[in-house]
Design a protein around this nucleic acid. Sequence first.
DNA 1: CTGAAAGCGCTTACAG
DNA 2: CTGAAAGCGCTTACAG
Lengths: 372, 372
Amino acid sequence: MSGRLKVTIRDVARAAGVSVTSVSRHLNGRISLPGPTASKIEQAASRLGYQPNAIARRLTRGRSETLGLITSDIAYPLFAAIASASEQEAARHGYNLLMFNSRNVAENELAFLGRIEDRQVDGVLLLTNHPDDGRLVKKINRTGGVVLMDEDVPGARAPRLFAENAAGAMMAVRHLIEQGHRRIGVIAGPRGLLSTTERLAGFRQALEAAEIAPNDELVVHCDYDEGPASGAFAALLALPEPPTAVFTCGDMLALGAMRAARRAGIRIPRDVSLVSFDDIGHADLLSPALTTVRQSPAEFGRRGVALLLDLIAGRKTDTVTERIGVELVVRASVASPLAGMRAPSDRNTVSMPPGADAAREESNEIRLSTRT
Amino acid sequence: MSGRLKVTIRDVARAAGVSVTSVSRHLNGRISLPGPTASKIEQAASRLGYQPNAIARRLTRGRSETLGLITSDIAYPLFAAIASASEQEAARHGYNLLMFNSRNVAENELAFLGRIEDRQVDGVLLLTNHPDDGRLVKKINRTGGVVLMDEDVPGARAPRLFAENAAGAMMAVRHLIEQGHRRIGVIAGPRGLLSTTERLAGFRQALEAAEIAPNDELVVHCDYDEGPASGAFAALLALPEPPTAVFTCGDMLALGAMRAARRAGIRIPRDVSLVSFDDIGHADLLSPALTTVRQSPAEFGRRGVALLLDLIAGRKTDTVTERIGVELVVRASVASPLAGMRAPSDRNTVSMPPGADAAREESNEIRLSTRT
DNA sequence: CTGAAAGCGCTTACAG
DNA sequence: CTGAAAGCGCTTACAG
């Protein structure tokens, strides 16, 4: 249709009557040409519809101008939000963002990391979601150009960007304790993950501060996904002496717990309170509105890309660890443990005029932050 | 650290004592070498840690092995789900997926489409979200290699992949009518969009079939986003004679409506019923669980990539239009218009034992499909 | 069957 | 300041 099959820099040079060197330099702004020459080049370029071939440019410059983002699944709300922010930030610096779904399988992560070696990407933001068996650390230390986000790969020579996991968990559990809960269950991520370790540590610190004895039977581990969390929740509630509140170490786990609760006819927060971690989009519109620890995905994305760009440019000394601040967003999934003792009707509607419960959820959205 | 700075195919050839031609051919499986030679090459390659430079390969082959996905924001649940499926399908065919957030700004879309011209991507899945002023169609017809998804760009020579918008809207509205609603409001997307036109057409068909006179004052247009939808919902409910039910033409609009309802103390579905379109993730865990028309994002992603790959390979005749089937997922956001007349307590809990409402929502998830 | 050589379309020392 | 030429690291007609 359009006759401009393969207009190259040589065509422009010929049409403008100058050398390809000058065309390249001028178009890349590395030289300031006398007015007439400059406009001859520009006119020739636009008349021919010249578009510099990015692949060729990359080959000569030795950079792909592309970053990679590895998550287990971009469809997960937290990862989608991080991806969005990362893309914006990458674009701001002239970089593309390639996205990879690892399905949380080490082989896939390793394969994607290989894209650094064959120069398809200049660097990678890696959000892994399983403990490393040693292959990831080895690969990362070979490839370089990796920023670890959200979860750690111990031993890797790489900048790190994590949430304030312990502080966040502590705030969440302290909130439960303040409402009167003393028997608190935890649905935690897989053993060996940084998020699991740190959030559990925060949980235990909060108990300790309140002089509540820890109880291992109330701690259940499972993968960061809804299905497993449903099972974990059911297991906790089936205990001879079930918890009056549950802390889920991620909103996907909270969703699983909420589904399990529905199936079992257990009402949150009347029968059991729930507090979580992440604050995925629309957590405020869930039933009930979820009280959870917010970690800003936008900040994650922005800082992650900034760290990666620093690393690629050789501006950073390898193994810094940055933390993203968190805040507790109080909504409606936590009640006092006595709530369940009331009449078996909806605690909000019965005692308040219609709509008051909605207004309450709205106005009660209090935020407690680790940062000022 | 690792001393393998720039191992090229020449190094391998030298080490193996063969020509680069043979190395290239063997490694790409375009030739079957005698056993000893083959293993000499493989050993040299692995000993040196050889990784073919993908950029160089792309320059010679003239393909970037990369596809682009343009959405207004990858963080929107529907788009994230489509992105996830697209990436999987692209990877299955050896393609990378680049992702672009257009923020629904034409200039950004045009810039990203330019990546086809400078060969950064071989093709693009374009999900635009605004009526074209003529620039998009012009650009697309210049670049080629575009598959239109979700929304149309009239006049573009491109394969198209849309949901069965009219059929879906009709099912949604018929469902409301069957529950006894006759005064039904609509929050529609921007005028001039395919989804708006078709969903509105389905809405009107459903009214007509029930012999309900259409009423333009009940149709409000706004951008596909929460904020505007909140305003639109408030406007509808502020009418002298407000609707008893509202059909939102997208789940983001439904979320906006739900937020507005909360703020105003309006309860869904007791005071007003709500039915929507999309079925974003966790719509079943919203408060109330959202009755909505599901369009499968996985199918969208898979078919979109397949169409694009066909187009790139020259296997397709340009302007096919495919439709993705939809189904109505009945949950808990629709009630009879009489519900509001009952006592001002939660209609589910009062009349049923605790948990029954949850069980009801669960078991009542009926699916009515346009496909068999 | 094998390999020397040209070519993909740029960028950039280097020489004039 | 300008341009001819080499080079980025592959692939692939082409000749032997």
